[in-house]
Nucleic acid binder design. Structure first.
Lengths: 203, 203
DNA sequence: GGCTCTTTGCAACGAACAGTTGCAATCACG
DNA sequence: CGTGATTGCAACTGTTCGTTGCAAAGAGCC
């Protein structure tokens, strides 16, 4: 069989301005943060980015694709590398502090909402799974291994409940209660979980 | 001051069919469950309910109002009355089991998503706060009081973290991980929190 | 500079959907 | 049976998504 349509090498002509891409993605996040997922209009994004509507459509096929692309640039480096602080409590706080900060910003909350609204936005759903759950899971594993070595972890305590519990609490607090997650609050939640997984110090 | 516009008593004429209201609200939930918050079209709702579009608009002023009304009929009796089972563990499971079941259905998840997408939908946000947080908070209070009396509750353990933690874990599990919350899973989460708030049994 | 092929701006357009309005038919209730 | 409402229907406005054709401009290469 012959190659079907060798994708037409096109190295000539005017290249696309990186400047445009950046401006549009940034404008998308801003729009998303103020207008919400449903309220985001790409015509307003174009206006904000000082760019014409058609230019936006020529780079991202649909509204959803644009939003997904914009979120991609944000969510990645949030839970990437958690520090080794020498205690389970410190490690968990170190892991969750960036998440709390992220959710403290309107753009961050918009991202979280978009991720939770997933079924309507498959791209976003996949993205959320990849960039949030992935790194977080590996971080948790390492962190628990260290805690085990220090004797801070009860044998039967389930590792895979730590993340849902803590991140879930953060989501509940920020998105449902609309309250902020200060340092004290975060420490309280972490303490709850830490003592939940600690070995019983029986007589 | 005189009464401004005594709202025009109108007891004559053909009354509105309760049947129509029911059908439309039910269709709205079904549509919401399959198409998501953004994808819900009131023309499709009307079609599903065997009713004309204008009839829908004559009863609910906007799409958002209709959705809020439909959710209202659902979310109320979920966390209403938690049983007194004689143990903190049992009480918490009794409280959360209905929530887990609720989130197990597509309509329930749609409701949760709508509540989390709140800022775009003020009615829905207010509704969620009222019908979810309200009853749950009172239930938790009573439940903790009983646990305290039984000595299952450590003095310093923060009461107001129990709900965010547990409900948050449920949300994380169902809406982000897209996994189901079986009985075993729920018990594990509750156990984590129960041992988190339990008094230290030191030597 | 000049050429080429592209991106960008612009205006106009079609389709889908929210929400409205006027009219005719229907129907519950007194 | 008559009254005054609800309901169905068709047509309409306005907004937004997404597309298309055309003209202008610009980046890289000779």
């Amino acid at each position: 069989m012959a190659r079907t349509t060798p994708p037409r090498r096109r190295d000539t002509g005017r290249p696309r301005g990186q400047h445009v891409t950046d401006a549009v993605l940034e404008a998308t996040l801003a729009e998303l943060a103020t207008a919400g997922l449903e309220g985001t209009r790409i015509e307003r994004i174009a206006e904000r980015a000082q760019v014409h509507k058609t230019t936006v459509y020529r780079r991202w096929p649909t509204r959803e694709a644009l939003i997904a692309a914009a979120l991609e640039g944000l969510a990645v480096d949030t839970m990437a590398n958690a520090p080794d602080t020498g205690s389970l409590r410190g490690d968990l706080i170190g892991l969750l502090r960036p998440v709390a900060t992220f959710l403290g910003r309107a753009e961050g909350r918009a991202v979280a909402r978009a991720a939770l609204a997933a079924p309507a936005e498959p791209h976003v759903a996949e993205l959320a799974a990849r960039s949030l759950e992935g790194p977080a899971a590996t971080a948790i594993e390492a962190l628990v291994a260290r805690a085990r070595a220090r004797g801070e972890w009860r044998g039967g305590a389930p590792v895979d409940l730590v993340l849902p519990t803590l991140v879930g609490a953060l989501l509940h607090r920020t998105l449902l209660e609309h309250a902020d997650t200060g340092a004290a609050w975060l420490e309280d939640v972490v303490d709850l979980v830490v003592s939940g997984v600690a070995p019983r110090e029986h007589a």
